Amino acid sequence: MDPQELMSGDNLSSLIERGIDAGTSLALAALILIVGMMVAGGVRKAVRNAAVKSDRIDDTLGGFFASLAYYGIMAIVVIAVLNRFGVETTSLVAALGAATLAIGLALQGTLSNLAAGVMIILFRPYKLGDFVEVAGQAGSVKDITLFTTELATGDNKKVIVPNGSAWGDVITNYSANDTRRVDFTFSIDYSDDIDKAMQIIQDTMGADERVFKDPAVFTAVMAHGGSSVDIVTRVWCNSGDYWGVHFDAMKNVKEAFDKGGISIPYPHQVNMTREG
């Protein structure tokens, strides 16, 4: 056989083998990609369904976790596909890791808010409609996202609080419990009848249907002030009635004191003149 013909046959055989290898790699890569996409889609759906069934996981957080799982699996699938084509994935993974670290450092504040948002949505220290005080700001919660919490103040100003600041500070939720205690301090003159004043306070508070009978209205002398005897009063009511009970009690007790002859003293000065 002619050497050129033999060489030509070897080349043809080599080309056929390379073609078969390339076709096999392509088929395996396509199979990995298809199976990976199916698995990623299935995991995303499972995570989302689990979030919907859970009372502790918000829909926003469920969607975030589902997307995170999906893209994480797809990243692994892409690396596996590239590996089938002989691409050096070790250096690629290292480069991706370095890029992720650089992005993480650059977005440190944003990622901190994101992590805090996940914690807020997961553990729910407050929810929509609650009146709270977070990061030194007080208002009703209007919206909670992964990055910020939106409050509406009493005079209807819109306040945006970064979740990192909210989660990293003391959170006071005035709406968390169904009931609240309302505290008062009423001052009377030293010449007034203390027992009579306390009875007037008891009767006035007891006449308000919003004030609980149990626990009972509490009254006691708290202090002897510079110009008054101070009587502390504590009552319990539903959280939604707190300010109504407070404002009405301040008016009603004053009027009852007037009718009962109990005076509310106020600071005054006496000027002394020296004769001669």
Rank of each mutant, 00 (worst) to 15 (best):
A197R: 12
M250G: 05
F218V: 07
V182Q: 06
D214G: 01
G240L: 09
M222R: 14
D208A: 10
S239C: 01
V211F: 10
P215I: 03
V211N: 06
D193M: 03
H224C: 00
V217M: 05
D241H: 03
M205I: 02
T204E: 10
M250Q: 14
G260N: 08
G244Y: 00
D248L: 08
V182T: 08
G244P: 00
F218R: 11
N238Y: 15
M198L: 06
I262G: 07
G225I: 03
T233N: 11
D203S: 11
D230Q: 15
K251W: 02
A216R: 12
S263C: 00
D208H: 03
A216D: 12
V245M: 06
D183F: 13
G225F: 04
V232S: 15
G261V: 01
R234T: 14
N238A: 12
T233R: 03
M198W: 04
T185S: 12
M222P: 00
V229E: 09
V253S: 06
T204K: 06
T204H: 07
M198R: 15
I231W: 07
S227H: 09
S263D: 12
W243F: 13
A207W: 01
A197Y: 05
S191A: 15
I231S: 06
A256H: 02
D203G: 06
K196T: 13
I262E: 03
A223P: 02
M250W: 00
K254R: 14
Q202W: 10
I201W: 06
K254V: 05
E255Y: 03
S227V: 14
G225V: 06
K213Q: 13
I201D: 02
A216F: 09
Q202L: 11
W236G: 01
I194S: 04
V211T: 01
K196I: 02
V229D: 00
R210L: 09
V229P: 01
S239R: 14
V253I: 15
F186T: 02
I262T: 02
M205Q: 14
H224W: 02
R210A: 07
D203W: 04
F184E: 08
D189V: 03
A220W: 01
I194N: 05
S191T: 14
F257E: 02
T233S: 13
G260M: 11
M198Q: 15
I200E: 09
S187M: 11
S191F: 01
M205T: 01
A249N: 08
H246W: 10
F218N: 09
V229H: 03
V232L: 06
D241K: 04
V217A: 07
Y242T: 08
A249C: 04
